[in-house]
């Protein structure tokens, strides 16, 4: 299923029909203004360290000072997984910027080892150079007036939200993070989120706590008196739907980070269009017009 995108950019005019009609709510996505993007750079970045943070999850640190100096929360990098003497795998992997330090030039990526590309990343010799392009894409926005931020991350999707959480905490914004995964040993980023002072709710499929209706009830109960000004979500269409509904109820701005297969990451290959067939012109690209989009819930029939 492709999310329903109504572009703000007239050059990307599109009139897609809602594709999530199974629920009583249709989520429409729109491009956010292209203001926070920073100029990407190509770095031959030494891999500094790998840390296994969960059963299948690794945190890899690159020495990429230019990227670190320009990065904004929600942006990503394209990492070449073919080593110096190799010409394939031909596609670099798009990876969210999990955390970075502009002072030291360190950039962290947290990913699930799943398939050839991520296995190569996790096995990359420390000290060997990796071709890295970034930061890429439009970042999350964080309004000056935002006092409370709700994050919903499913699986590795939480890793697109950590930098936003850190930015928000640095401004004194209250951050509540729902970290959803299949199993307890697939929960990641909670240590990071707790360290920066976020309230973390880990939920998993194995005990039913990640069930979207249970989450909805919990959010309804806990957020009744506590306003949330902004919601950010990544990694799950069901969580996106929930986020959009919560945002609608609380009148909060909702932004979603989408994932897509990419080849260039810059916008010239047009491989990651969100589009359906039969449009008059091309739908937005995840890499260039996203990966962060504004999400709005629209009632269908008797929805809230």
């Amino acid at each position: 299923m492709t999310p329903d995108i109504s572009p703000a950019d007239p050059a990307l005019a599109s009139d897609m029909v809602g594709s999530w009609t199974a629920s009583s709510v249709r989520v429409r996505l729109a491009c956010i203004p292209d203001i926070g993007r920073t100029e990407p750079t190509l770095e031959h970045a030494p891999v500094l360290e790998h840390v296994r943070v969960a059963a299948d999850h690794v945190l890899t640190t690159l020495d990429a000072p230019t990227m670190a100096s320009r990065a904004e929360p929600g942006q990503f990098a394209m990492l070449t997984v073919a080593r110096g003497g190799e010409d394939s795998p031909v596609l670099p992997r798009p990876m969210a910027l999990y955390d970075w330090d502009a002072a030291t030039g360190r950039v962290d990526f947290l990913y699930r080892v799943f398939g050839d590309g991520t296995a190569r990343m996790a096995a990359w010799p420390v000290g060997e150079l990796m071709t890295a392009v970034g930061p890429l894409g439009r970042p999350f926005s964080l309004a000056e007036t935002t006092a409370s931020l709700l994050l919903l991350g499913r699986g590795i999707g939480i890793c697109s939200l950590t930098a936003l959480a850190a930015r928000a905490r640095a401004r004194g914004v209250a951050v509540h993070a729902i970290v959803s995964a299949r199993r307890p040993d697939a929960i990641v980023a909670t240590d990071f989120l707790e360290r920066i002072g976020a309230t973390v709710w880990p939920v998993v499929d194995t005990d039913g706590s990640s069930d979207v209706e249970r989450l909805r009830a919990r959010l309804d109960a806990q957020l009744r008196d506590r306003a949330v000004d902004q919601v950010a979500v990544c990694g799950s269409e069901r969580l996106l739907r929930l986020a959009a509904q919560v945002g609608r109820r609380l009148d909060a701005r909702v932004e979603v980070s989408l994932e897509a297969r990419m080849a260039c990451g810059l916008g010239y290959c047009h491989g990651c269009s969100t589009g359906e067939k039969g449009l008059a012109s091309e739908a937005p690209l995840v890499c260039k017009d996203g990966p962060v989009f504004l999400a709005r819930a629209e009632a269908i029939g008797k929805a809230q």
């Binding site: 297969r261 491989g271 269009s273 012109s281």
Partner: peptide
Amino acid sequence: SGNPAHRL
């Protein structure tokens, strides 16, 4: 508009 996803 080009073709539908997936394109790659």
